[in-house]
Write a protein that binds this DNA or RNA. Structure first.
Lengths: 345, 345
DNA sequence: TTGAGGTCTTGAATCGTTTCAAGCCGATGT
DNA sequence: ACATCGGCTTGAAACGATTCAAGACCTCAA
């Protein structure tokens, strides 16, 4: 009790205290129904008194399975990913499994390290938002026997199970919304080369614009508030006659930057420029000018990914290995018909 | 290679392939310098070819120590906590340790479960944002041999090591700022009974108000945007003569709710009511009316907690077991001198 | 009374590593 | 040529649980 350097209590100690064998104690822990009431209670009392805590390493080593699952995110602190993580987390908690969460912070090295940790810990499976869904590491993990569900990225080719969003459709929704409002000079702000989903959104926007025979400028910037700000300055400095009257952003955070910088340079939103985000992060509705955006069901994607993983872990091959959610348009105040306050000079 | 049900490769297989004993392979993994060059390379080649991955459970069981640390948050998706988590995470990554992250979601049951997982995994230590710093569970974990650093909560009494913020001072800063602006009817919005730090803030505000001989109303609401909204409605409906001209919020998110609801009911911010937040979440600066607030160094708190934990794990007793950061006032647009646009009916 | 058929218990083997003491081997010093 | 020494290797004993086959005990029916 008082001795600091006291050895940890193990099954053996409990067994001795309760006057039974170690096998019995183990059974109380794992198959209580197989043990007689009297002894079971004696064992439970001993566990309580000695403060015994089962050693998970030993358990796992012998039993050969674990109820820990890995979750690897790209950007844990990005609100959209945080929401997905919450979905995975809640689903895991409900299933009584523990989550080993990691964050690659968009660094390949950290991604590699995290995947290695997952396999070393022999996790039952992992939900991964990878840099590149066909990366070598990812496949090594799968070859190493760890089932993987890819989140927010799709690759129909190989046997990977995945949960994603039809971002091409999302891009199209965004563009069509702006076109319906009468806009004829559009811009896409973001950097398609940064990630496949962003590329898809761009693709959708581009296709819709092309079909409508409308001009589209691409303005590259980092996917951050800061990036949005610089893009905003660029936009503000364009001659009004050439300036797009509506922009679709790759992600909401970029739109936030735009919304900060445009008014500061005398460009009214949505009077002179309509701004559309992508993701529908919680903050979007709470901005000075509530942001029109394309919503993705992040939380549901998280729970779906976990459920899919559970199935794969159980050895089932899901009927629908590539679950694709549909995005929806949420019109708020940052987008308006062309010419509402127009020209505005 | 192709056989799905192939047994995992272990040390033994590597040893056989490389023509050495298992002891040697283990040495290559843990003390490469003790092994001759020729064999070391043979072993490394075999590891590579067979795709061997060390089993962490077995390693930990035998070696008796782990390089995993636990992190238990109250509210992972609250921006302030997310920022702390980022600090802990980066520090851990830098130290080459892995993080077992959990989220109690303000549920005692989940907190208990997470702590149990930590002890079962025999983590080297844990950083915990507890519900109640003197809770039974927390002490059981410590008694079980897991060193704990308490984050964002302080209890000078027992031997717990902790990192916190002087929130009494923070509350005082908030109140004094509002007093300096000439306000004489203050309100505190939030619920001091919900958490110790909130209680401290309230204490600070109350003390400063009392010293100035100024009236202070306490308005309780949940610590969420929604809570802030309801509080905003209550406030808006008060007769102007009685209504506080300045409110200090328990946390930024409540202020966000206020900022949404007050203007909607014709109450101008900061014209008729000044609003002060607490935390300085990233969003604070980006609101329609940039939020004046009391900033806390969340990221630094996270890294500090981890460093403290490392020391404790090494067996050192930190010279300064209770690290207390100082909050600072950040004046933005949501607070203004009394009567700037005043009366304003 | 005995045998069959349960239900509970138990002891021992086992999981894949680390680590320690002991062995081997070639080189060095005398 | 012998003793000694130091660097590499090795085999075997843990680590703390789970599990399985086998034993103990009890009850009930014949």
């Amino acid at each position: 009790m008082s001795n600091v350097a006291m050895r940890r209590v193990g099954l053996k100690d409990v067994a001795r205290a309760a006057g039974v064998s170690v096998g019995t104690v183990s059974h109380v822990l794992n198959h209580p129904e197989r043990v007689g009431t009297a002894r079971r209670e004696a064992v439970e009392r001993a566990i309580e008194e000695l403060g015994f805590v089962r050693d998970e390493s030993a358990r796992q080593l012998r039993a050969g399975y674990s109820s820990t699952v890995g979750l690897l995110l790209l950007d844990a602190w990005n609100p959209a990913f945080a929401e997905m993580a919450r979905g995975v987390e809640d689903a895991a908690a409900e299933a009584g499994m523990t989550l080993l969460m990691s964050n690659s912070a968009r660094s390949l090295e950290r991604e590699r390290a995290a995947l290695k940790v997952f396999s070393e810990h022999r996790v039952a499976g992992a939900v991964v938002v990878p840099h590149d869904p066909r990366s070598q590491e990812l496949h090594q993990v799968r070859a190493g026997g760890v089932p993987v569900v890819v989140l927010d990225r799709t690759d129909p080719r190989d046997g990977v199970v995945s949960v994603g969003v039809n971002d091409v459709l999302g891009g199209r929704l965004a563009a069509e919304h702006l076109l319906e409002l009468g806009h004829r000079r559009l811009a896409f702000v973001g950097d398609p080369s940064l990630a496949v989903p962003v590329q898809d959104r761009f693709e959708g926007v581009r296709a819709a614009a092309a079909e409508a025979g409308v001009e589209l400028v691409e303005l590259d910037c980092p996917l951050s508030v800061e990036g949005g700000r610089t893009a905003g300055r660029t936009l503000a400095q364009m001659p009004v006659a050439e300036r797009p009257t509506a922009v679709a952003c790759a992600v909401d955070v970029v739109a936030v930057g735009l919304l900060q910088e445009l008014p500061r340079h005398g460009v009214d939103v949505p009077g002179q420029v309509s701004v559309l985000g992508y993701d529908d992060i919680p903050l979007a509705a709470q901005l000075a000018v509530p942001l029109s955006t394309v919503a993705r069901p992040h939380y549901a994607m998280g729970t779906a990914a976990f459920e899919l993983l559970r199935a794969v872990v159980r050895g089932e091959t899901p009927a629908e290995p590539h679950q694709v959610f549909a995005p929806t348009l949420v019109a708020r105040a940052s987008s308006a018909p062309l010419g509402a306050t127009a020209g505005g000079e």
